[in-house]
Amino acid sequence: MPKDIDERAQGQGINRWWLTPIVTLVCMLIAAIGLHFYLEYNNSTAQSLYDEGVEHALEGQYSRAQSLFEESLEHNPNYEAAEINYDFMSVALEVNEKLNNVDTLVDQGAFQQAVQITEEAESQLSSYNGEIINFLLDSILDKRNEVRMNQVEQRLADDPGAEELKILLWQVQSLEHEDAESLEEMLRERIVSHTATEANEKLQTNQFTAAISIIEDGLRYAPDNERLISLKSTIENQQSDFETQQQERIAQALNQYELEQEQNENNAIDVVEVEVNVNDYDEMQVTGELLSVATRPIHSISVTYKLLDEDEEEILENETYAFPDTLYPDETGQIDHTHSDIPEDIDLDEITISIEQISWYLDGQE
């Protein structure tokens, strides 16, 4: 036998004593590695389910998203984001239900109530933040804009006036909606049509300033509209022509007035006839007819005349008044005066008359 057999036996005993902790360590290491991979798998699966849930939430599929967040928590109960989103999906589903009710209210024409619901839904999300919240808020805003678009279209169907159309245009301009631009253009066309109609009505009665003011107000809402620009130019041209003609008419009227005034003051009476005859009492009777060619009433018409003998020597001069006292344009008046104081040596049959002066007052004068 070998001499060192005891030493070998003693050495082999020492190796077996160290084997147990080594095996234990290896097992623990394997278990740790296995646990690590298990946890990594769960975390990875939880993250994947969470990401998928977020995608569905951002597509508005809140019920499906909530289920995915729940599955994510089953793989990782400590996943705080998944837990928060899981709880929030209940709020999202409630808000989404409200938005679905909005469509029913719009169909019923209850626009104000529909807008109020969107505002309540928005208020319900005020304490939250995040990507899903932003998506939901955008959905609420889109729904509110849709309600207001429907409200404007409903009011348009009632053929509103120009002022209400301007208010509706202002409302549509504040909306972010795919149909807002076309609706805005329709409103502008309606405003242009109303503006042109109102301006033309003013133009028909020569209210040029009012017509231009209406056009300028309309151009604030459709600044490049050729119809309004052209109509404004037409109104300005007609105003210029009218004012020129008016000045000419005024000048003509003033000239006519001056002519008439001269006529009324200096040539208002035409003598139709005047006679001097001997009456049955051997008196000289002066009679005559006067015609008013004035353009306004005249009164207190006096006629100054002379009686002349056969040698055209003055016998006497006298003033008499026509009757009636007032003559209107184209009316006639009479004079009639009897002279009984003619000298006896005058041949009455040879007496003639000479009108020296006719005077009068215009109506309103004394």
Rank of each mutant, 00 (worst) to 15 (best):
residue 139 S to W: 04
residue 140 I to E: 07
residue 142 D to H: 08
residue 142 D to Q: 14
residue 147 V to H: 02
residue 150 N to V: 02
residue 150 N to L: 07
residue 151 Q to Y: 12
residue 152 V to H: 01
residue 153 E to V: 11
residue 153 E to T: 09
residue 154 Q to M: 15
residue 155 R to A: 09
residue 155 R to E: 13
residue 158 D to H: 10
residue 158 D to W: 05
residue 161 G to L: 06
residue 163 E to G: 07
residue 165 L to W: 00
residue 167 I to Q: 12
residue 169 L to C: 08
residue 169 L to D: 08
residue 170 W to T: 15
residue 172 V to C: 02
residue 173 Q to V: 09
residue 173 Q to H: 12
residue 174 S to Q: 15
residue 177 H to S: 03
residue 180 A to M: 07
residue 180 A to G: 07
residue 181 E to L: 11
residue 182 S to D: 13
residue 185 E to C: 06
residue 186 M to R: 13
residue 191 I to N: 01
residue 193 S to E: 14
residue 199 A to V: 01
residue 201 E to N: 13
residue 202 K to G: 11
residue 203 L to Q: 03
residue 205 T to G: 00
residue 206 N to F: 11
residue 208 F to N: 01
residue 209 T to Q: 13
residue 209 T to N: 12
residue 212 I to C: 01
residue 213 S to V: 10
residue 213 S to L: 12
residue 214 I to M: 05
residue 215 I to Q: 00
residue 220 R to Y: 09
residue 225 N to M: 03
residue 226 E to W: 06
residue 228 L to Y: 07
residue 228 L to H: 07
residue 230 S to C: 05
residue 231 L to S: 00
residue 231 L to I: 03
residue 233 S to C: 03
residue 235 I to H: 00
residue 235 I to N: 00
residue 238 Q to H: 02
residue 241 D to L: 15
residue 244 T to V: 15
residue 245 Q to T: 06
residue 246 Q to R: 15
residue 248 E to N: 12
residue 248 E to S: 06
residue 249 R to W: 02
residue 250 I to D: 15
residue 254 L to Y: 12
residue 257 Y to Q: 15
residue 258 E to R: 14
residue 259 L to V: 13
residue 261 Q to W: 09
residue 261 Q to M: 10
residue 262 E to M: 14
residue 262 E to C: 08
residue 263 Q to Y: 05
residue 263 Q to F: 05
residue 267 N to C: 04
residue 271 V to P: 02
residue 272 V to L: 07
residue 273 E to C: 05
residue 273 E to H: 09
residue 277 N to M: 08
residue 278 V to I: 13
residue 279 N to E: 01
residue 280 D to P: 05
